[in-house]
Structures are given as structure tokens and as C-alpha cells.
């Protein structure tokens, strides 16, 4: 599904991601973990094509290095952000509409004279959004603006926004950050449910080890931009170097930081 090979991202003299390679299989919940500054979010941003990078990224056989940022969504990749990138003055509904494919504007001469296809596409996009709001139980807040909602709810809205993009893979950057244990587990269940019922592939960056160990099929551990270890949760949890570099010597039990 996603094949990252020899990915390197440098900012000035700093090597943020250093010859990283990994392969994500279709339908997997795949986690990237590592200490702060290990380069996890940079990997996401490279896949989103925000920065120039060397190496190759293939998604479903097509070379993402040749795809401009606004076409990444069309390729079937949707994502969320560490600090939530919703439009603050818009409603939940408008935020989702913006992401729905049928709602993307055509050239000006079609939009400003409102050619017949425009209205039809708008209605279809609305139906798609309504369906997603119902799937995640967000109908009640559809007309609230983003600025009025609590952080935990916004994480779910961002996830909903991913889903209306009809992706084949979603990338979640710290989906449970800022949530309490109960909320975290609820969201973890939603993630699994999305994978199972919508058959999506999920790439995840997360610090909450209880969530990562609970839902991931495969984990890549990064440190200083390099891959430290990779394997299933059981393997990673017992890997000596991982324990040393990341989990901390005395903190072998996974229930660490937030």
C-alpha cells in the first residue's frame, strides 16, 4: 500500500529523517513511535509533500514525489494534525464540506455562472457529509463553530473530516493527545471500527503507549530520524534498545507518558 524507501528530510544542516524505509500493508494499523524530535511528524509532512525530500514514497504504486500537495487528497490519503488544523471560524459542517470531493471548486467560469453540474455536486457532497456525521455521532454539533468546541471533540471532527475525503489511507498525528484515559480508549475503539468497517489503512503517530500497544498491528520505532526497531507490539515492547532509548529503563510497563 505505502512504500517508503530511503526517505531523507533535511532542514538546513539538521537531518530530521535519515534514510528511513518502511512498508505499510493494506488494512494495517501501523504506528510510528519515538521520542519527541525523532522525526515522526516530519515523515507525515513528507508524505503530505510539504517539504522537499529525497528517497521515494510510493502509494498504491504511484510515486508521491511527483504529486503536488493539493493532489495528495485525490490519491486517497487524508490526515489529521498534532495541533488540529480545522478552520476556526467555520462550522463543523462547513469544515467537512470543504474536504468532501464533490465540493471542490471547478475553474471560475463554471463556478461563477453556476453551471448545472455545480449544484448537483454540492448536494451530493452534503449527503456524504451527513452520512459521516451520523457514523461518528456528530450530528448534534454540525452547526457549531469550531471555536466553541472542546479539544477532544475537535479530534473526532478532524477524523470525520478525513473520512469524508473518501480516503484509502488515513494518517493520524497524535489522535488521543490531550484526552483523558477514558476518551483515549473510546477514540482507539473508533479507529479500529473505522479500519474494520471502512477497510481503511491507518498510519498513526502516538505517544500514548497504551493506545499504541492496544490497536497497532505493526510498529516502527524512530530515534534521531533513524529507524531503531520495527515489529509487532510484543516484539517492540521487549526490544532492549527501544526500552533504553524511548520507554526508559525503569518504565518497561507500557503505560507511560501522554
Amino acid at each position: 500500500m505505502l512504500n517508503v524507501n530511503d526517505l531523507t528530510v533535511t532542514f538546513g544542516g539538521v537531518v530530521a529523517v535519515d534514510h528511513l524505509s518502511f512498508d505499510v500493508a493494506a488494512g494495517q494499523i501501523f504506528a510510528l513511535i519515538g521520542p519527541n524530535g525523532a522525526g515522526k511528524t516530519t515523515v507525515f509532512n513528507a508524505i503530505s509533500r510539504f517539504y522537499p525530500a529525497s528517497g521515494t514514497i510510493f502509494f498504491q504504486g504511484s510515486n508521491l514525489m511527483k504529486v503536488p500537495p493539493h493532489r495528495i487528497a485525490q490519491q486517497g490519503i487524508a490526515r489529521t494534525f498534532q495541533n488540529i488544523e480545522l478552520f476556526h471560524s467555520l462550522t463543523v459542517m462547513d469544515n467537512l464540506l470543504l474536504a468532501a470531493r464533490g465540493h471542490h471548486p471547478a475553474p471560475w467560469y463554471q463556478e461563477l455562472v453556476r453551471s448545472p453540474g455545480v449544484g448537483r455536486a454540492e448536494r451530493q457532497a452534503r449527503a456524504r457529509v451527513d452520512e459521516t456525521l451520523a457514523f461518528l455521532g456528530l450530528e448534534k454539533i454540525a452547526r457549531s463553530s469550531i471555536g466553541q468546541l472542546p479539544f477532544g471533540t475537535l479530534k473526532t471532527v478532524e477524523l470525520a473530516r478525513c473520512l469524508v475525503m473518501d480516503p484509502t489511507m488515513i494518517m493520524l498525528d497524535e489522535p488521543v493527545a490531550g484526552m483523558n484515559a477514558e476518551e483515549s480508549l473510546a477514540l482507539a475503539d473508533i479507529i479500529v471500527r473505522i479500519r474494520d468497517s471502512l477497510h481503511l489503512t491507518i498510519l498513526l503517530v502516538e505517544h500514548d503507549m497504551s493506545v499504541v500497544m492496544r490497536i497497532s498491528d505493526h510498529i516502527v520505532v524512530m530515534n534521531f530520524g533513524k529507524k531503531l526497531a520495527e515489529g509487532d507490539p510484543e516484539y517492540v515492547r521487549n526490544h532492549p534498545e527501544v526500552i533504553e532509548a524511548y520507554l526508559g529503563r525503569e518504565d518497561t510497563e507500557p503505560r507511560a507518558e501522554a
Binding site: 493539493h70 495528495i72 471560524s89 467555520l90 462547513d94 465540493h103 471548486p105
Partner: peptide, 23 residues
């Protein structure tokens, strides 16, 4: 309208709008 919503979004945060697949 969708073009109007996209204009408002671009005014607020162009790079996120782009990420939504909006040209």
C-alpha cells in the same frame, strides 16, 4: 456555495485548504 466556502477557507488558512484537496 462551494466556491464561496472555499474562498472563506482560503482567506483563513490557505495551506490547510490546499490539503483538503482544494486547488
Amino acid at each position: 456555495t462551494r466556491i464561496g466556502l472555499a474562498m472563506r477557507a482560503m482567506a483563513q488558512d490557505a495551506s490547510t485548504a490546499q490539503l483538503m484537496g482544494i486547488s
